[in-house]
Every structure is written in C-alpha cells, then in structure tokens.
Write a protein that binds this DNA or RNA. Structure first.
Lengths: 152, 152
DNA sequence: TCACAAAGTGTAATGGTTACGATTTAATGA
DNA sequence: TCATTAAATCGTAACCATTACACTTTGTGA
C-alpha cells in the first residue's frame, strides 16, 4: 500500500512536469511511511537529519506544490497547519472524520451540499465540512482525552 | 440594531466580570458599527488613531477574550484570522454562508450533523461547516469575481 | 555529454501573535 | 469621596511560521 501510493504521488508529480529530486522523493516517502499528519516543521526535522544544509524554502515550496497538485491535503488545526497524503481511495469529493487523539483521518462519503439548497441568489463556490472526535480505539484507551486541544 | 447589539455585548462582558475599559468599549463599537469581518491588525489600526500608545497585547488579548465569551466569532480565512460579532438572532447552533466579495455573513439554519449518523465507534465532539460563494448583490455587480482569494 | 531551466541552499526578512515587567485604571467598599 | 487593589494596559521584545532572494547545484532532454 505504501508502495503504490508513493508511486501514484510520484506519477502525478512527473505528469505535471516536476523534477524528481532526492528531496522530493524523501517527502513522498515521509508521507507514505507515516500515514498521519505532518507539519512543515516536522517534515523539515525529519529531512534535515539526512540533508545537512536543507533549506526551509525547499520544504515549504514543495509542500505547497504538492498540495496544489492534489498529492497532499492541507488541514488547518488550531495549533498550526498540517499536511497528509490525499485519501487514495477517494479521489472523488468527500469529507473526513478526524480523531483528536491519534490524528487518524477517516474518509466520509457524505456531503452536506447534496441535501442543502442555497438561497436562489447565492452562488456557492466552495464549502468546508470536517468532523472531529475520537475513533474507536482511542475511545477505549482510558487516557484522559478531555485535555486534547480542539482543532479548528 | 447597533445600539442593542453593543448593549448585549457589554452586558455579557460585565456578566463575566470583565472591566469595561475605554479600549474594550471601542472594540465593541468597531464590531457593531461595521458589521463585517475585522482582522486583529484592522482593529489595531482603527484604535491606534485614538489611543496613541495602544499595545498589540491589548488588542489580541481582548479579541481572544471576547471570542471565548461568545461575543465575537473567529473565522480562519486563507489570508488570516478575522473576527466578527456573533450572529445576534442566532444564539442557537448554526452555520454560515460567507460572501467572498463583500465578506457578508448569512446565518444558515441547517446543520449537516442532524442528517448524518457517525459510525458507532466514533465519538463526535465537534464539527465545522461553512459555505462560501457570492451573495446576490455581489453576483450582480459585474466586477471580475474570479480573482478573489478563496478562504479556508 | 552538455546546456539550461528548475530546484535547492543559506540567510535574512516579514508578519502575525504572544510574553512580560512596569505602569495605569476600573471597580469596590469604607 | 477616596484609598485600595486586582485587572487591564503599555512598551517593547521575543517567538514562530512562513516567505523572499541571490547564488549554487542538479535533473532532464537534446
């Protein structure tokens, strides 16, 4: 699964004419090996261990490029922006459950816009819908979950 | 209408034991006189004209306090965080249409969570749902609306 | 292999936000 | 009314994420 999703990400990058640098391959690997959220800072810290003189510019530029290509998704949490690999089996429009304890993301095949008609005069161009809470395994772990910071 | 909404904001602040300083009265006035979004910077710039030595601290602290009290609402746009007075006639749970051209906010008495059952094992604690687009009057103004920056 | 545009590097700047000691002030009650 | 005092503000600096940019390196296609 990591195998194929990394391949799909790289294929997309090539299709859009991006050069496959070592740094970009590493970013792809990070997001396929650890299937959770990563902040720009976390990506930087992971990479700088290997690439001594790594530049912030490289990290931020590539994260933004990969997001524009739809390879990564950007989530705006209260404690900062984080990226994750796009949901592989859901290339169509969808939303997410997000676990506040483990940062797990569960695609959700429900869109409120299908059940809502906007007032006639309003032209809808975009919407956001995300659900936050605790997934089954995190609910069962009896750690105190009440102190987790709530995302946006 | 400005009259009563300012009074309601101030009543809330007093009820929570906040002191009514000149600076806080000014913030209330800004949000009731101009019923749109204001960034912290915009609030600061409006106020510093009157209060020569105004501190960033004062502005940010008060905006955050007023948001915690439910007097202001925080919206996370792509170009930064903005505040507006809470929808006065909608103290119950609701969502919003937001016009990308004029920044108008239209309360929406629809909540997708009423029509969605989460998987059994998932404990939902929070959700976000906002709709973006162009309101009737902005649609009709033939200015080029395609270049507006999309919010989060 | 070569040429060159794309990408990366190193560093500085920017912008929003928070922190904090010193000072001022709103609210309380005698 | 006025003294008290905790809350709020001020002035300034620090912090953090992100962006900018001149220069260097490198992937890619001829």
């Amino acid at each position: 699964m990591e195998e194929s999703s990394a391949k799909r990400m790289i294929d997309t990058m090539i299709r859009y004419g991006l050069r496959m640098t070592e740094q970009r391959r590493t970013i792809v690997r990070l997001f396929t090996e650890a299937p959770g959220f990563l902040s720009a800072k976390e990506v930087y810290l992971e990479m700088v261990a290997t690439y001594k003189g790594l530049s912030f510019d490289t990290v931020y530029r590539n994260l933004n490029v990969l997001e524009k290509l739809g390879v990564l998704e950007l989530f705006r949490f209260e404690d900062g922006n984080k990226f994750k690999a796009s949901c592989s089996n859901h290339s169509h429009h969808h939303h997410h459950f997000i676990c506040l304890a483990c940062n797990g993301v569960y695609p959700l095949d429900y869109c409120p816009m299908r059940h809502l008609k906007a007032p006639d005069h309003f032209k809808v161009t975009k919407h956001i819908f995300e659900i936050y809470g605790y997934c089954g395994s995190c609910r069962n772990n009896k750690t105190d979950q009440s102190r987790h910071t709530l995302p946006a």
